[in-house]
């Protein structure tokens, strides 16, 4: 099933942050939204979530930092139950332990408050929580930026495996084309609030058309390893 949105735009204090944009996302598709800082990537993610409506379980959004996702005064279990209730689901401990295990959190203590966990664990908890309602689209805003590389790579791997088993589509928001190229089959390049290029990953890497995409491709990796 295809998700499509037309005329998505955001204006704030008289400035246009996001110019009117039409988006279509196929079922199970993995898309990366790439662009420099300040180009409006997070804004697009928020606007898309708000437009489709997160509450009905169609789209789920995991913010960049756990501080933007979890109330420090409430336990992790409280957050989980609250998310279930918001989706109209009754508590399902089996589903919960499956999702937590999928993100490598099977033995974690949920009775503690978020700050009792490392930031990496919090981030994975937020992603697990986003998957509760089996959304058709999962939006991940810079999921690796709060994580150490080893944990970041493991997290992306776990998410990948979970998404492959369902038909959930992913929108990966990142400034890093290297990461995007490894994790997505289609790339949207955002610059100054406009999607300036929309192409299959291989095509974009081989023949970037826009100036923004050419800059991203030129600075794609730090180094190439002979191995």
């Amino acid at each position: 099933m295809t998700l499509s949105v037309t005329g998505l735009s955001v204006r704030r204090a008289g400035h246009t942050i996001l110019h009117p944009t039409d988006l279509t996302i196929e079922s199970g598709e993995r898309i990366a939204l790439v662009g420099p800082s300040g180009s409006g990537k997070s804004t697009l993610g928020h606007a898309l979530t708000d437009r489709i409506g997160g509450g009905r379980g169609v789209v789920a959004h995991a913010p960049q930092s756990p501080d933007e996702a979890l109330d420090p005064l409430r336990t992790l279990q409280f957050h989980w139950r609250e998310a279930e209730r918001a989706l109209g689901l009754s508590p399902d401990p089996g589903h919960q332990s499956d999702l937590l295990a999928a993100l490598g959190l099977s033995r974690a203590d949920l009775t503690t408050r978020p700050w009792g966990w490392s930031r990496g664990m919090q981030q994975r908890f937020v992603i697990a929580m986003a998957l509760i309602g089996a959304p058709r689209l999962l939006i991940l805003d810079e999921p690796t930026s709060a994580l150490d590389p080893v944990i970041a790579a493991a997290t992306m791997e776990l998410v990948d495996r979970h998404l492959s088993a369902s038909s959930t589509a992913m929108l990966l928001i990142t400034h890093d084309l290297g990461l995007a190229a490894r994790r997505a089959e289609r790339i949207w390049v955002l610059e100054a609030g406009r999607i300036v290029e929309d192409a299959a990953t291989a095509a974009l890497l081989a023949r970037p058309a826009s100036l923004a995409a050419r800059r991203l491709v030129a600075h794609r990796n730090w180094a190439v390893l002979p191995c």
């Binding site: 928020h46 979530t49 708000d50 409506g53 997160g54 509450g55 009905r56 379980g57 789920a60 959004h61 913010p63 930092s65 501080d67 933007e68 996702a69 979890l70 109330d71 005064l73 409430r74 409280f78 609250e82 998310a83 209730r85 918001a86 989706l87 929580m129």
Partner: peptide, 22 residues
């Protein structure tokens, strides 16, 4: 103004519950 409130609304938590619980 707490930074996590928009995420709660995006998760579909009702407005009055956000007020009461957070």
């Amino acid at each position: 103004g707490q930074p996590f409130l928009p995420a709660l609304a995006r998760r579909g938590v009702a407005r009055n519950r956000i007020g009461r619980d957070h």
